[in-house]
Design a protein around this nucleic acid. Structure first.
Lengths: 223, 223
DNA sequence: CCGCGCATTTGAACGCGTTCAAAACTGAGT
DNA sequence: ACTCAGTTTTGAACGCGTTCAAATGCGCGG
């Protein structure tokens, strides 16, 4: 954010964001110009740039909004079941439901986010608030589950599940099937598998492998 | 490619590609304009567009070149060892060695490639030749290995290893450590783990899980 | 009321990716 | 040599993201 908040500036900012997200949905990202956003918001182009450093930054709201809504939308399934597979699937399906309004411009969003150093990147320090919120959500998925989890793995599982989610998201971005059916199927098939792997991780035979995987996940974090 | 080949056109094309890759390396992708590429190649801007539909398409050569070079660079390690972990690590390290010249603009390349429908996407039909070449390489990594592999998994492993490679590449793109040290460490730690998981996949206890994972990998392929 | 400093707004202009009509080139056939 | 058709080349112009100097608005203190 490039400007400190006053009542007037907050209103202008909100108008711009609202206009942008509406036009992105209607026309796609590429089909929406800054001139159109400014006009729709009732401000000048330069004014839009006073508040947002770039067109790409206009989609920041999408990311933050998603993370906030994800937790709320996941609450029902997390309250209802202790089955790990169901909790994982439910949490992912909650995300899919919220995100579907934005599928039209998700490709652009993730393309931008994939660039190193970009504040929108899920791995960037600028996104740590949203990322931490997601990690906390996955921690809750695990905490409320009846599945016994290998001790060395437990601390790393929120991150591994978050990475799993990113994989689902990547698949979703590329999914052009009606109703995003293929992504939902992928969730339906992979979540039980994930739950099963988590359970199997307690097998003594797999102890060394689990330890290695946990160490590896830890090293991904190293900065 | 937008034009049929004649000797003259091949020469012009080559000049443009050469100029582009040189400038991308020197100035990065964003710092290189099409006007600069055209001037460096000794042609007009419009002429550059006669051969390449967009600035992004100029990096197609990078992708194709990588896939071709990867096989050649992997040959020594594949001839030397039958240990699966070593073959996997060697194959990935070969890629890293070839690709390092292009690290400066890799972020842009992958950002573009991540967009749905983009011909540069590793998942697109336009990239199937390069993708098939990579899959064939991973098949060779497995075929020349002494590790016994679970039958239901074998057919799917080239793809799974390719996806593993994409994960490494994604990490590499974001790696700013000296000499891309962290990526090399990731390879060094994950390749033995992968080899171990492949071996463990033969355990009867893991049979159902392996079958499920193989089915899942197959469904990722759907249409 | 005026002046000041800061916040907000403006819109012309800039640079860049890209387009496209027209010019120039090339090789084959008569 | 000329004509024709196809290929290659050109560079001005377009649209878009973005910038920035100047104008306007606002609140506070004297």
């Amino acid at each position: 954010m490039t400007a400190p908040a006053t009542a007037r500036s907050e209103q202008t900012r909100a108008q711009i964001v609202e206009a942008a997200l509406r036009l992105f949905r209607e026309r796609g990202y590429a089909g929406t110009t800054m001139r159109a956003v400014a006009e729709e918001a009732g401000v000048s182009v330069g004014n839009a740039y006073y508040y947002f450093r770039s067109k790409d930054e206009l989609v920041q709201g999408f990311y933050d909004q998603l993370a906030a809504d994800h937790r709320a939308a996941s609450a029902p399934v997390l309250a209802r079941t202790t089955d790990l597979g169901e909790r994982v699937a439910g949490t992912l399906n909650a995300w899919l439901s919220i995100a579907e309004h934005y599928h039209a411009f998700a490709g652009r969003f993730f393309a931008v986010a994939a660039q190193p150093g970009n504040p929108l990147s899920p791995f960037s320090s600028a996104s740590h608030a949203a990322r931490d919120a997601e990690l906390a959500l996955w921690d809750d998925v695990l905490a409320g589950s009846s599945t016994r989890i290998a001790a060395q793995l437990r601390a790393r599982l929120p991150e591994l599940l978050w990475l799993y989610q990113l994989g689902i998201v990547l698949f979703w971005v590329h999914d052009s099937s009606p109703g995003l059916r293929r992504t939902r199927e992928l969730v339906g098939r992979s979540a039980p598998l994930v739950a099963r792997l988590v359970r199997l991780a307690r097998l003594p035979t797999l102890g060394p492998v689990v330890r290695q995987a946990a160490d590896l996940a830890a090293s991904l974090r190293g900065s």
